[in-house]
């Protein structure tokens, strides 16, 4: 099975080093006593303490979390509907436009999306008086618009590999289309939808550019706060914050990944056993 040449292996190792070395260094320097971020001055956790006393960062993190959760939920609903329509409804009228609209936000430069949404919100406020000013509402709407595209792609490609006869079988046994969706399709594609939710959450949690355009006074999300701090130079408490975020994501992903691998292994074993038992 091992067909990799030395060149490929070397490139792979180099690639992973390139991806992880900066993160590892950042984690290391978060435990640096010295204020000069890159000069080692002994081990310390004082920056973590400072981080937790920084009301501005904590407030921004909480705001970001709220927006990310609302966005993820809304984007998942919209993206699932769009994915369902694209994967299952054949050639309905307006399908090409929906395909274009649903995938364009994936690659659209953020400055364009951000600018255009802000101009829309301003125009809407002038025309109908809503949304009044800019803040959580406008940020959430903007995030939903670009992150639903990711959910759409995830759901659509999951449905493309799902045997359509499962849904037909349920219908054949007497379930109406809406019931088929909730009893059969939804439970089976739930892992994909969950992945889509997490993706939408992360995208929103991480977004700086679009947020900067559509945010208003008093609603600075975490990336906005970090960006303004970083522009002024490196600061050790940002290292600490980054470390916490990386560790949280890494822990979550590892546990989830291991769980999935274990499930798969158990399943494979059961499949083998079932085949063996029959012979």
């Amino acid at each position: 099975m091992n067909r990799r040449s030395h060149f490929v292996t070397a490139m792979m190792v180099a690639g992973f080093l390139f991806l992880y070395l900066p993160i590892v260094l950042m984690i290391a320097f978060s435990f640096n006593e010295s204020r000069l971020v890159t000069v080692w001055g002994g081990f310390s956790t004082k920056w973590y303490g400072e981080l937790f006393r920084n009301q501005q960062i904590l407030g921004a993190a909480w705001l970001s979390f709220k927006i990310a959760a609302m966005n993820a939920t809304g984007a998942t609903v919209l993206g699932t509907l769009a994915g369902l329509a694209l994967a299952r409804f054949g050639h309905f009228c307006g399908r090409p436009l929906l395909t274009g609209l649903a995938t364009a936000p994936l690659v659209m430069p953020e400055v364009i999306t951000g600018l255009s949404l802000l101009l829309l919100f301003v125009a809407m406020e002038q025309a109908i008086g809503w949304p009044e000013g800019r803040g959580i509402t406008t940020i959430t709407i903007a995030h939903m618009t670009f992150s639903m595209a990711y959910v759409t792609v995830v759901v659509q490609s999951r449905l493309a590999t799902l045997d359509e006869s499962l849904e037909e079988a349920a219908m054949d046994l007497g379930a109406r289309p809406a019931k088929v969706f909730f009893l059969i399709t939804l439970p089976i594609i739930l892992p994909a939808i969950l992945a889509g939710w997490l993706l939408a959450f992360t995208l929103s949690w991480d977004d700086l550019v679009i947020t900067s355009f559509v945010t208003g006074p008093g609603s600075s999300t975490l990336p906005v706060v970090i960006f303004s701090k970083v522009r002024l130079g490196v600061s050790p408490d940002i290292n600490a914050l980054a470390t916490l975020l990386v560790l949280a994501v890494a822990t979550f992903t590892t546990v989830f990944g291991l769980y999935m691998i274990r499930q798969q292994k158990r399943r494979d074993l059961e499949v083998q056993r079932a085949i063996a038992a029959n012979e």
Partner: peptide, 28 residues
Amino acid sequence: LLLVMLPFWTSFLLRVYAWIGILKNNGV
């Protein structure tokens, strides 16, 4: 594959920021 995805799930801004500490004049 998970290792390739992992950085993607962590903050983009902070990963760019990490390079400042590496590349600057008194950086790593």
